[in-house]
Amino acid sequence: MSGTHEDAVISRQVRRLESLLEAEGIVGGDTVDEVIDGFLAGASPVNGAKVVARAWTDPAYRERLLADGTSAVGELGFSAGGVQKQRLRVVENTADTHNVIVCTLCSCYPLRLLGPSPGWYKSEAYRSRVVRDPRGVLAEFGVTLPESVDITVWDSSAETRYMVLPRRPAGTDRLNEEELASLITRNGLIGTGVL
């Protein structure tokens, strides 16, 4: 069996738990929805962009971010997501290495930093192909990397969530942190884009 996460089982358990809590009067019928709405309201690629812009302008922050992503994004008031905070690992693109993220089992994603995931990220086509032929998939996103660049695909198969630290574009030395943040795209944070 397997090949999928236990999402269906969890969904059933969650619905059952919700109805029990409501039946016992422990939470009102709207409480859970309100929590989820509040959670999603804070979820946006603007958050990931702020983290990256800080790392580009503050070398000490960049080091902390790469060493312990969970704590470093926590400094800015963010997390990868999860009711219980998920571990975040930030992977850095350089002249020699390019990183791209996926979840082949379902569609795990650093929701709070990147916002709700795009449809293609959840598609069978992306999930099955990017681990096998990342160069081919990246080309479809308009990204062509030199042969010498080593591509690493991070398949989030457990509790850790991944975010890419893209390369800072050339000619941006004069931009401030806010201006830099505005250059950063969601695809750049997934690794399916370069800036």
Binding site: V131, R132, D133, P134, R135, D150, I151, T152, V153, W154, D155, S156, S157, A158, E159, T160
Partner: peptide, 10 residues
């Protein structure tokens, strides 16, 4: 292929 894949494994 010449790339790498990282997985999180128990």
């Amino acid at each position: 292929g010449d790339h790498h894949v990282v997985l999180d494994l128990s």
